[in-house]
Computed example of a mutant assay.
Amino acid sequence: MQVNGTHSRSRMVSEINVTPFVDVMLVLLIIFMVTAPLMTQGIDVKLPETAAPAIPSEKERLMVTVSKDRKVYIDDYAVDLESLGPKIAAIYQNQQGQQGVFLRADESLPYGFVVRVMGTIREAGIDQIGMVTEPLTGLTTGDLTEK
């Protein structure tokens, strides 16, 4: 029998030290918070402004974007204008019912080019084409009728 208490030191400790785990998790959280905004990529398009209200959509639709330099994208994938129709038709080939596309076009594009893209989409058999715009900033509807 030992008096100085060495017997109690030889017992195993069954507690888990969570401090290193918490430290690692906090570092990972900070890394993800810093890098997440850098991972989002998009197509730079200045949309025209309008006072029209948003149209509610119950289904997710395909997004066709035309940039300022006349490049055409299906969602985030670049396509040339000649292959736009067949690719959209292939995407919607197995879907039944109404098929729709949202079209985002830069406001500096000529009207004729935007109509050409719309015609290509229509030739692919798309029933509905929605034009994506930005809400008016600083102007009211009354300001538009006075000018």
Rank of each mutant, 00 (worst) to 15 (best):
V101M: 05
P48H: 04
G42L: 06
A54H: 09
E58P: 04
L38W: 15
Q95P: 04
M63T: 09
E60P: 00
E107L: 12
I43G: 02
L38C: 12
G100F: 10
A89Q: 07
P86F: 01
G42P: 02
D69K: 08
I30F: 07
D44A: 14
E82L: 00
I91T: 08
M33W: 06
M39L: 15
F102K: 07
D80T: 04
I43H: 01
F102R: 07
V66E: 04
Q98F: 08
K71W: 00
L103I: 04
V34C: 08
V101N: 03
Y73I: 02
L81F: 08
Q99Y: 08
M33Q: 06
V64M: 01
L47E: 04
L84G: 03
R104H: 03
F102S: 11
K59S: 14
M39N: 14
P56E: 13
Y77S: 15
I43K: 02
V79Q: 07
L47S: 06
R61V: 10
A36Y: 11
Y77K: 15
T50K: 10
P37C: 07
T40W: 15
V101S: 04
V101K: 03
Y73L: 03
Q99E: 15
S57T: 10
L84H: 02
E58W: 07
L109T: 03
T40G: 12
I55R: 15
